[in-house]
Simulated assay, not measured.
Amino acid sequence: MSDEQCGSVRSLQDLGPIARRLTERRAQAQAEERARREAVARVQAERHLFAQAVGPVTPLAPRNPARQQPSLPAPIPVQQQRDEQRALQESMSDEFDVSTLLDTDDTLSFRRPGVGPDVTRKLRAGHWSIQRQLDLHGLRTDEAREALGAFLRDARRTGLRCVRVVHGKGLGSPGRTPVLKTRVQRWLVQKNEVLAFVQARPAEGGAGALVVLLRPGLR
Rank of each mutant, 00 (worst) to 15 (best):
A19V: 07
D3E: 14
I18M: 07
A155H: 13
G217W: 15
F151K: 05
V198N: 05
R26A: 04
R112N: 09
V98E: 15
S11P: 01
E46A: 13
V40D: 13
A155V: 08
A39L: 10
R21I: 01
T182V: 11
R157L: 12
R47K: 07
P17D: 04
G149R: 03
R176Y: 13
R153K: 12
Q69R: 14
L139N: 05
Q68Y: 09
P65N: 10
Q69D: 06
R157I: 01
V43Y: 01
A35Q: 09
L22N: 04
L134R: 03
T58L: 06
L188C: 02
G16M: 05
T182P: 00
A29C: 03
A19C: 04
T100D: 15
R153H: 12
F197W: 07
L180T: 03
G168A: 05
R176G: 08
P202M: 00
T177N: 14
T120V: 14
R47C: 02
S173M: 07
A19G: 07
A41K: 05
R82N: 02
L134S: 04
V78W: 09
G16E: 09
R37F: 11
A61K: 06
R20Y: 07
S109V: 08
A207W: 02
D154L: 15
D135Y: 08
E38F: 10
L108D: 10
F197E: 02
P65T: 13
V163G: 14
L60C: 03
I130D: 10
H48M: 06
L72W: 11
S173L: 01
N192S: 11
L15P: 00
R219V: 15
R111M: 12
I130R: 12
V166Y: 13
V198S: 04
G208Q: 09
L195Y: 04
R36N: 10
T58A: 08
L60M: 03
S109F: 12
Q85A: 12
R121D: 09
W128P: 12
L88C: 08
G170P: 12
V184Q: 10
V163F: 15
L12P: 03
A147G: 07
H137Q: 07
A66M: 09
F96V: 13
G217C: 13
R153V: 09
Q69I: 04
T141P: 00
R47G: 01
A19W: 05
G55H: 08
L171W: 12
P75Q: 07
P56R: 14
V54A: 06
G175M: 08
A155Y: 14
R215G: 06
L210A: 09
V54P: 07
A200F: 01
I76N: 04
C6T: 11
R176L: 12
K169L: 03
